[in-house]
């Protein structure tokens, strides 16, 4: 099977594939069960009142005037208190299970930096930098390997949310939040930024690719290599290096070392561009370079107004960056 497949199109928290998300789903049974029970009881009483105590036509005597009853009040105070107590204990336990987890020695460390409106992803121990698509290894029996994320923001608050892997954690500027995932199934899982962060909050999508340990190692090796230098696209490379692209984008092994936009060294290893706003297909890539705002209005990359032949050349060049 290809790395990254299958793509789980529906980010459904009830189909967790990773420890924190699994713990949350278990809590659901208790909380959901109690809720449905209470709804049925109250709904039933209300139904009974509406059908049995409805005034019949012509009946205008006042009913017996009852002012209250301390026993009854006591009963319907103590029962909710007990229910709440049970819920609270279950909640507290799961909070500590998830938040107090200490990284084991061989945990993978990743730093995710939220930008208006894309994700920078760094693997400090591995020397890999990429964007918008996070690769993590599957945790397999006998060789458990959770991934710990350090969340930072370059500008405003974002929130990292991939429901099948874990609950969300905000990405707060001037603060380093931590979260962890431990997926046990390979495939691509979808999520997106969950805290309003400005114009293109809606198109700040996330993909997490869970690889088998072997695939992950291969992916890391590929990512560590500098960019392919293909002489057939030398023209495009020259255009790229002589325009402002280089002040915002990095292509390792060339003079391009900007960090304002996503690293393009291995652009072609990603399935989407512009944080998921478009597929990474040649025509979409070209359209993006011509005018990013046609695809993602408000995106912080300017339309560079290159002549057609230069756009073609740059697109051809970028298409070689596997």
């Amino acid at each position: 099977m290809n790395p990254g497949s299958p793509v789980h199109a529906i980010p459904d928290m009830f189909q967790p594939v990773s420890a924190p998300a699994e713990a949350i789903r278990q809590l659901w049974w208790l909380v959901g069960g109690i809720s449905i029970g209470i709804l049925l009881v109250v709904g039933g009483i209300l139904w009974w009142c509406a059908t049995h105590f409805r005034a019949r036509p012509g009946e205008d005597r006042e009913p017996p005037q009852v002012y209250g009853s301390n026993q009854i009040e006591f009963a319907w105070t103590i029962v909710p208190v007990l229910i709440v107590l049970v819920l609270f204990l279950a909640t507290a336990r799961t909070i500590y299970d998830v938040q107090a987890m200490v990284p084991p020695k061989d945990a993978l460390e990743v730093t995710v930096v939220g930008h208006q409106w894309w994700w920078e992803i760094r693997y400090p121990g591995l020397g890999v930098v990429t964007a918008n698509e996070l690769h993590v290894p599957a945790s397999v029996p006998g060789a458990r390997r959770p991934t710990f994320l350090t969340l930072e923001s370059a500008d405003v608050i974002h929130s990292f949310w991939v429901p099948q892997l874990a609950g969300k954690t905000d990405v707060v500027p001037a603060r380093r939040n931590r979260m962890w995932v431990e997926p046990t199934e390979t495939g691509t899982f979808l999520g997106q930024c969950a805290e309003f962060c400005g114009t293109q909050h809606a198109n700040m999508l996330l993909r997490v690719v869970v690889d088998s340990p072997a695939d992950f190692a291969a992916w890391v090796e590929a990512q560590k290599r500098p960019a392919v230098a293909d002489p057939r696209v030398a023209v495009g490379r020259a255009v790229f290096e002589s325009t402002a692209c280089v002040s915002c984008h990095t292509v390792a092994g060339t003079g391009a070392d900007g960090t304002f936009g996503p690293d393009l060294t291995h652009l072609m290893s990603r399935a989407t561009i512009a944080s998921g706003a478009a597929d990474n297909a040649p025509d979409r890539l070209r359209a993006w370079i011509v005018d990013p705002h046609a695809i993602k209005p408000g995106a912080l990359m300017p339309a560079m107004k290159l002549p057609d032949d230069q756009v073609d050349a740059v697109t051809a060049y970028l298409s070689t960056l596997r």
Partner: peptide, 30 residues
Amino acid sequence: CTAFLLEFVLAGLTGVILATVPIDWQLSDS
């Protein structure tokens, strides 16, 4: 007021669901 009683119970219950912190990690801002 009768409709309110039923709808409000539902509102309260989803409120308790959201107060269950780990579930809120999933549902907050959704």
